[in-house]
Design a binder for these strands. Structure first.
Length: 502
RNA sequence: GGGCCUGUGGUCUAGCUGGUUAUGACACCGCCUUUUCACGGCGGAGGUCCGGAGUUCGAAUCUCCGCGGGCCCA
């Protein structure tokens, strides 16, 4: 019996149950899935390290949380996680602020973890008081061995009083770096060794912190758990790489009898052809491989901004990817498509002639071409481009072997090659003629009139010329016809445009 | 060494409380439109739903075993 037959038979035999069984399950997924446990509004966070500028990986976290804040209302906390001096670049504070402004997040408040060490100490003390933590003075290697064998180290048997006393000594600077740390008592027989008595605080004196005067530093699991509770976080959305941290933090929550937020972990994201690691990018900048944090070959937000990628395009792209736990390969094509949706309607069209070759055109009086700024939209007006007898044409078009062209918005020409010299002959105004000959319709510019322009692309620069109007004002996005979109960056003697995408 | 997560066309994604011609987007190809290889419209190709076994009338969906990718303790 086919599926349809069964369905029809059942409809006859048991019409009352039929509806329930074969009910069309249709739910239009619009964007992200709902979050469980939402009461009135949510409190969520974006919590970057100030170790460098923000990149696409950060944008995913930032926008995903932002989307839920928009959906449910509530508070969106920007938490600068600067407790580890080894992962703080003083210049990054400003960069992070700028990048967040660019994204347009609806941040309701900003806090710096470096301002909150005393809160972390208080929670450390409370954990000790509750018998949940001890001061471990074992050598790291030795502890690791014990841990692997599910064996307690001698320090673990401290009474809370002893532990408290030792912690106070730590805070007063009695121990050198590496000599003492605070560990949480979890479960030494936990099948996952990553859970066994993980560290909460350490002594750190070799790397000073610009904003903190301390010898005892909280480790991220302690500071993150503390702040997630103190700031009333209801939902936490972050990468899968934090799953183990989530479990560790839950140990702290349970010791302290705190309500545990709802966690969501999305998959890892690789980006084709791009290094996302801040340290690797920094190394590349120091070695002059990259021009800076906004080098267009990098995956930083400032690099994308420079290329003319719109923040909303990034938002749309990461929302489409969603919160799935599968590891994905982010594709630029995807982002470009989103970006084009946004910029196409606003970008005026202009001519850009890459690798221009001068060609004298015989047989036509000077005329002025009128070309629409935006095809089909008279209201946006026309560009007027003078033809004075000699034009610049793209080298690759001339090299293609074709000898009959339509100069867009002008007229047809025939190319004549004489002793290695290129000459053009006027070949009539008739567009239909050009079409029937399948002549390439190409961009052109008058010599002398046009503006030198370097088009910067990740694969390399292209030098050419463009219409003066195209590079009249910086930070505009134009479409160079038959080349692609570009963001005008510099308007000097030789203008600079960054290639966005086709 | 241990633990955890994950595997749907090239990329992303829906479906995953079992029954669909396996959804949509991007990319690709063709046609239409068009003084751009853009935008728009129409159409097309492209999938062993990682593999195997099992449960079932029926498995992308459930179970088990493999394999691949990723992460944590490092």
């Amino acid at each position: 019996m086919s599926a349809d037959d069964r369905e029809q038979t059942l409809q006859k035999l048991a019409p009352d149950q039929y509806a329930g069984i074969f009910e069309k399950k249709e739910k239009k997924k619009t964007g992200l899935p709902d979050l469980p446990g939402v009461k009135d509004g949510v409190v969520m966070r974006f919590a970057p390290n100030p170790s460098g500028p923000l990149h696409l990986g950060h944008a995913r976290a930032a926008f995903l949380n932002d989307e839920y804040i928009r959906r449910y209302g509530g508070r969106y906390i920007l938490r600068i996680e600067d407790t580890d001096p080894k992962r703080v670049d003083p210049e990054a504070y400003d960069m992070v602020r700028e990048d967040i402004a660019w994204m347009g997040l609806s941040i309701s408040e900003t806090i710096f973890q470096s301002d909150r060490f005393s809160l972390y100490y208080d929670i450390g003390k409370e954990l000790i008081r509750r018998g949940g933590a001890y001061v471990c003075r074992c050598d790291n290697e030795a502890f690791r061995d014990l841990k692997m064998h599910k064996t307690a180290c001698p320090c673990r048997s401290q009474s809370p009083e002893e532990a408290m006393d030792l912690f106070e000594q730590m805070l007063e600077g009695a121990f050198a770096e590496g000599e003492a740390g605070v560990r949480l008592k979890t479960d030494l027989t936990h099948p996952d060794p990553a859970m066994r008595d993980f560290p909460l605080f350490r002594v750190l004196t070799s790397t000073p912190h610009e904003r903190v005067d301390a010898v005892v530093y909280p480790l991220m699991n302690l500071s993150v758990a503390a702040d997630d509770h103190l700031l009333g976080m209801t939902h936490v959305i972050r990468g899968k790489d934090h799953i183990a941290n989530t479990r560790r933090q839950e140990f702290i929550f349970r010791y302290m009898d705190w309500d545990i937020p709802v966690y969501r972990h999305y998959g890892r994201m690789g980006i084709e052809g791009v290094v996302l690691s801040t340290s690797q990018m920094r190394a590349g900048i120091l070695s002059n491989e990259y021009s800076g944090w906004d080098d267009i070959r990098l995956g930083t937000l400032r690099a994308m901004a420079r290329r003319g990628i719109q923040p909303e395009a990034v938002r749309n792209a990461v929302v489409e990817i969603g919160t799935g736990e599968t590891d994905i390969q982010f594709s630029w094509e995807n982002l470009f498509a989103k970006n084009k949706e946004i910029i196409d309607k606003d970008a005026d069209r202009f001519f850009f002639v890459p690798d221009p070759v001068p060609v004298t055109i015989k047989g036509c009086r000077p005329v002025t071409a009128k070309a629409m700024r935006y095809p089909g939209d008279e209201a946006r007006g026309y560009r007027e481009i003078p033809f004075t007898g000699s034009v610049l044409l793209p080298a690759d078009e001339l090299a293609s072997g074709a000898d009959y062209f339509r100069l867009k918005d002008l007229f047809n020409i025939r190319i004549v090659r004489e002793d290695g010299n290129l000459l053009g002959e006027y070949a009539g105004d008739d567009l239909q003629e050009a079409r029937s000959r399948k002549a390439p319709i190409i961009q052109w510019l008058p010599e002398g009139w046009s503006h030198p322009c370097t088009l910067k692309r990740p694969e390399g620069d292209v030098s050419g010329v463009c219409e003066p109007e195209a590079v009249a004002s910086p930070d505009t996005i134009v479409q160079f016809e038959r080349v692609g979109f570009a963001r005008i960056d510099g308007t000097g003697e030789t203008a600079v445009a960054y290639f966005t995408h086709r």
